[in-house]
């Protein structure tokens, strides 16, 4: 803590000594060299963490949703679909993991949209920094949120009796794949956050897209009993691929091709929506 400097003489008529003191206490500072891309992105990630610390309730979407869905699906459908909740859980858990994390991606867009509406980004955009840093940094923060959601779902599953054959390694691979895919999918929402007018518009679009996408997959039921057209939809659904791979990783049967497919899909999402997001970001007025 610095000590308060003695009051300097008044700088002129009409000004109090505290004003003059104010100026002497804030001398000019030359501008340092601008930060590199990594420092800039990590600073934005730090900002995201500070925000989580200040308003922990914004984590409710990655805490409440996964917990509620895991419990609800296990006990609601378990008996009917698999004979017992415990047996259903073995099938269900990778599915709820995917659903919980994918649903959390919409908040990337919601948060970005809120920041833009408040003008905070105006200042960021007049700084000489690597232009994608604000978005990349926010996504690093989001990746931590997705990890938290994954840990919760997995931990709860283990408590309820889920036993992955793939062991610790399999679980870690599964979580890593889901988080990587979710971060890539988040670029879709950063674009929506920039293009759509309001947070509620993003939410409604996300719900209309994400819910059918996760439900019309093999996350909760095997497609065997579905009508043929729906089975075709489920097989074409990228969420199905992700769930299958996640399930295989947890079971310890995942193949290199499956992993490569998820990584390639993630890379494709970033390759398409990353540049679109940055274009929209630069043009945002």
């Amino acid at each position: 803590m610095t000590t308060v400097p003695a009051a300097a003489p008044s700088s002129g008529p009409g000004y109090t000594s505290s004003d003059a003191q104010a100026l002497s206490a804030a001398p000019a500072r030359p501008r340092p060299a601008p930060p590199g891309p990594v420092t800039a992105a990590l600073t934005f990630a730090w900002r995201a963490l500070l925000k989580i610390r200040r308003i922990p309730e914004q984590l409710s979407d990655v805490i409440a949703v996964p917990v509620v869905f895991t419990l609800l699906f296990t006990y609601l459908f378990g008996g009917a679909l698999a004979g017992s909740p415990h047996r259903y859980l073995q099938f269900l858990l990778p599915g709820t993991l995917v659903m919980a994390v994918l649903l959390a991606t919409m908040y990337t867009g919601v948060n970005l949209n809120g920041d833009l509406a408040k003008g905070v980004y105006d200042r960021f955009r007049t700084l000489r920094i690597w232009q994608p840093a604000p978005i990349v940094g926010a996504l690093i923060g989001d990746a931590l949120r997705y990890l938290l959601a994954s840990a919760l779902v997995t931990g709860l599953g283990l408590l309820l009796g889920y036993r992955p054959h793939g062991g610790v390694g399999g679980v870690l691979i599964a979580i890593a794949l889901v988080v990587v895919f979710a971060v890539a999918l988040s670029w879709v929402f950063t674009l929506l956050g920039l293009v759509l007018r309001s947070a509620s518009a993003i939410m409604s679009l996300a719900v209309v897209v994400l819910f059918p996408l996760t439900l019309a997959s093999n996350a909760f039921v095997e497609p065997g009993t579905m009508p043929g057209w729906l089975r075709a939809v489920v097989h074409a659904n990228p969420v199905t691929q992700l769930v299958t791979t996640t399930r295989a990783a947890m079971d310890g049967t995942v193949t290199a091709v499956q992993i490569a497919t998820v990584l390639a899909a993630s890379a494709a999402l970033v390759a398409v929506f990353g540049p679109l997001t940055m274009r929209a970001y630069r043009r945002h007025e």
Partner: peptide, 18 residues
């Protein structure tokens, strides 16, 4: 940044300036 404190706001910007 409304959610952050004044000090946090200034420190984040200080880092971003370099």
């Amino acid at each position: 940044d409304e959610d952050l404190t004044a000090r946090e706001n200034l420190r984040v910007l200080g880092r971003l300036i370099g």
